[in-house]
Design a protein around this nucleic acid. Sequence first.
DNA 1: CCTACCGATCGGTAGG
DNA 2: CCTACCGATCGGTAGG
Lengths: 196, 196
Amino acid sequence: MAKILTSKNGTKKEVIIQKAAQLFKSKSYTAASMRELAEALGVEAPSLYNHIGSKSELLQTICFKVGNRFTEQIGIIRGGSATVIAQIEEIIRFHIQMMLENFDEVYVANHEWKHLSEPLLNDFLNIRRNYEKSLAELIETGIEKNELKKTNPYVAVLTILSAVRGIEFWHRNKKNISPQMLEDDMVNHLLNGIAQ
Amino acid sequence: MAKILTSKNGTKKEVIIQKAAQLFKSKSYTAASMRELAEALGVEAPSLYNHIGSKSELLQTICFKVGNRFTEQIGIIRGGSATVIAQIEEIIRFHIQMMLENFDEVYVANHEWKHLSEPLLNDFLNIRRNYEKSLAELIETGIEKNELKKTNPYVAVLTILSAVRGIEFWHRNKKNISPQMLEDDMVNHLLNGIAQ
DNA sequence: CCTACCGATCGGTAGG
DNA sequence: CCTACCGATCGGTAGG
């Protein structure tokens, strides 16, 4: 009877994935049921399986889409000729923008990846490890070039990635902070600190 | 038949809570079953209910124990007479130590609180909001006293709390980073930045 | 796209 | 502390 709306939202499968990301984010992957997802889309649960293979396939699609997008972007940035500091700033800004523009999917990739099943779980962790390694190399280069203070690259990676990930706690319009100000303040904090 | 071991681990209830934190951390609250918890403790599932009221009670106990501990500590630190910078440093170090010493419970409080049911969910969020507010006030004081750069206090709180929370991704012995070095590097990064 | 339905698993209780 | 068991809900399939 009811049909999944697709107007300017891509294929039906894409619409399902988008709604799934929203649901997995607000209820967590395990607690979200396929019946709830179906209801949110206006159909009965079994109808979903005409478009998707399984619940876990939805999670996989979301996690790898996000992981691959970040990997692609750090390659583009590091392939450029900007200074190390400028590249780090670009990376931080990209993280913040991704978090603001693809909130549901980034949130799910950050929080629900542990419910991936092998061998995909291992693949996902490898994507993440390689990303962190690439960022650590960039920081090492910055230290060698004397653009950055001498510090442990892995702790710096941890600090930066954790900070930008925290944007998920930021609520729009709260305290009158614009996205631009959030970006500028956080970049400045991570690069220059807050001590006077 | 089997009995829950309590030797130097506190009461049986405390042993159950500790194992629950471990299980909720590795499998998530929803995916972890009471049967698994019972098995990890060497008893049958119904036996658990002689010591605890329900699964959700376990989550509540963990979340509020952690939340109250942090609230207590920031009160102690802010009640002292150290400079603002020294107090912020103390707070950062306390977060890192809590994450290292009470990993399972801190992790669960950070990740699984959303499965609390009302009105406890609201109580927990209030505890967290008040904590963030207290830290923001401290930062505002630091700016007024010219100890800190002029920056948005809420963004600074977000950056600091997110960074320390990220310690959960840090694996012991990895890359030969000692806890002391981790603490020092992260405090230095957040206070002074990494740019040369 | 639906109705009807399956086997598995869940949190928790009764009763001893 | 156990065995036995309950009603509810889950992901997914059959068949049209």
